[in-house]
Amino acid sequence: MLTKNTALAIVDDHPIVLEGLQRLLANVNGITITGCFTTGSAFISFLEENKVDVLLLDITLPDINGIELCKTIKEMSPATHVLALSNHSERSMILQMIQNGATGYLLKNISAEELIACIHEAMSGLITFSKAVREIMARPSVGELKSTPQLTKREKEILYLIAEGQTTPDIAQQLNLSPLTVETHRKNLIQKFQVRNVAALIKMASQQGLV
């Protein structure tokens, strides 16, 4: 449950969004709106002098990226619960916000009831997502599943030969390269595919249709 003195602030560069959120939350028991800001720097100045329990934070701001701003806010005030409220539905952005200390991520198509419920969850110490975000997190997009590292022509050749089971000396002789160069390419491939070993590299490359 929200306490009567839950101080909530909003950062969004669209005045109409600020006005709408203020009206929406003005009469909610337990919430006191302590400030509305159109820039990140204005909020930072406010936070230096004031306690903020919950912050509704847009990611696209005129002076600072909201993801970086979230990190700064958590460093200044670890107790502040930052809830991203954004139109950006990219899985990578959601993860970056959580990694930078956000308590939740909400899309702007959220209903009033769901918004209030998410604020309650945040104040209870839970990581909270709007329904649309939960669906995004549960099902990665087709593009993400099919995304493949950008490989050079040489890397593709070596990847194919590795998948064929050839050793570093074999590959070096066939491509007229030094074993050290082949080994460097092998390490680069493992790094690009973000895997730990050659077996995982071959499996990932096979799943993505590269071998």
Results as ranks from 00 to 15, higher is better:
M1W: 05
N5S: 11
N5L: 09
L8H: 10
V11R: 05
G20L: 06
G20S: 13
L24P: 00
N29V: 02
N29G: 02
I33M: 06
I33H: 06
T34F: 08
F37H: 10
F37R: 11
T38Q: 14
I44N: 02
S45Y: 08
F46H: 15
F46M: 02
D58R: 00
T60S: 09
P62C: 02
D63V: 06
K71Q: 14
K74L: 06
M76I: 09
V82F: 08
V82T: 06
L83R: 02
A84G: 01
L85V: 03
S89R: 07
S92I: 14
S92G: 00
M93V: 07
Q96E: 15
N100K: 13
T103L: 10
G104F: 00
Y105F: 12
Y105S: 07
Y105P: 06
L107T: 14
I116R: 01
I119S: 03
S124F: 01
G125F: 02
S130T: 03
I136T: 08
S141M: 03
L145Q: 13
T148S: 13
L151F: 08
T152Y: 05
I162V: 11
A163C: 07
G165A: 13
T167I: 08
P169K: 04
N176A: 14
L177D: 12
V182L: 04
V182K: 00
H185L: 06
L189I: 07
K192S: 01
V198A: 04
G209V: 04
